[in-house]
């Protein structure tokens, strides 16, 4: 495998997996909370939150990337604050790529979880309450197990989106080999130079492989969870 891919290509694949996994891991908990708030919350600004979450899905990715650059860049208000107080730098770093991917995948993650939260029979939660479970326990023993298939589906969508994210990433963190040059960025680079067709083709195959494996894994997991719930 290492011989089949050039070191440059191999680096891009590794970096893409790292970025996608990071993006997915860090969005799960916020995604779950936002999905719960949107599905069940009755608070002022709920509609606004809904729009905000879905914005990256509708806006051109370049716009999202540019907004990220403005706010999370070195001189952006959020970027400057984080760099100064936490030493956290996003611009032109792989962490920035992960941030861009997380934000682009967030609406997909939230939508999948939200649908499964809305499908939960709240009468089961009532029953758990009468059996002595406080609201936190009700969540962990009843709600969470019941939304697990949706949560897994959302995570896969978020991961897949991150593997393929291009527009926002390249706008926000550019295309720096070894740092921010993810798989799609390198494919793009290959298509811009003469003789790059071979590399582009190899990376395309890798992309397809990763997508298929992720999809099969999630389908298998979801089917097992469904069987557990229904059998």
């Amino acid at each position: 495998m290492t011989d089949w891919l050039s070191p440059e290509e191999w680096t891009a694949v590794r970096l893409s997996l790292q970025v996608a996994l990071t993006a997915m891991s860090f969005s799960v908990v916020p995604g779950l909370l936002v999905a719960l708030a949107l599905a069940r919350g009755r608070f002022w600004g709920r509609g606004l939150l809904d729009v905000l979450v879905h914005l990256p899905l509708i806006m051109p990715p370049v716009v999202t990337g540019y907004l990220l650059l403005l706010s999370f860049g070195r001189r952006g208000p959020v970027g400057a604050f984080l760099a100064e107080h936490f030493g956290l730098v996003f611009s032109f770093r792989w962490t920035g790529a992960a941030l861009a991917c997380a934000i682009m995948g967030f609406p997909l993650l939230v939508r999948a979880i939200r649908l499964s939260v809305e499908a939960v029979d709240r009468r089961l939660e009532e029953a758990a309450g009468t059996l002595g479970a406080n609201p936190v326990w009700v969540f962990f023993t009843v709600t969470l197990p019941l939304i697990l298939p949706g949560l897994v589906a959302g995570m896969v969508l978020s991961f897949a989106k991150a593997m393929g994210e291009f527009g926002a990433t390249i706008t926000f963190v550019s295309n720096i080999p070894g740092e921010t040059q993810t798989l799609p960025s390198l494919i793009y680079t290959f298509t811009q130079v003469p003789g790059g067709e071979g590399g582009a083709a190899r990376l395309t195959i890798v992309s397809i492989l990763v997508s298929v494996v992720a999809l099969l894994a999630s389908e298998g997991l979801a089917a097992r969870l469904r069987r557990r719930a229904a059998a």
Partner: peptide, 16 residues
């Protein structure tokens, strides 16, 4: 959850 009042609902509501 602190009442210790057991309830059996019309639709059983077992955890699937």
């Amino acid at each position: 959850h602190r009442r210790r009042v057991g309830v059996v609902f019309q639709d059983a509501r077992l955890f699937p």
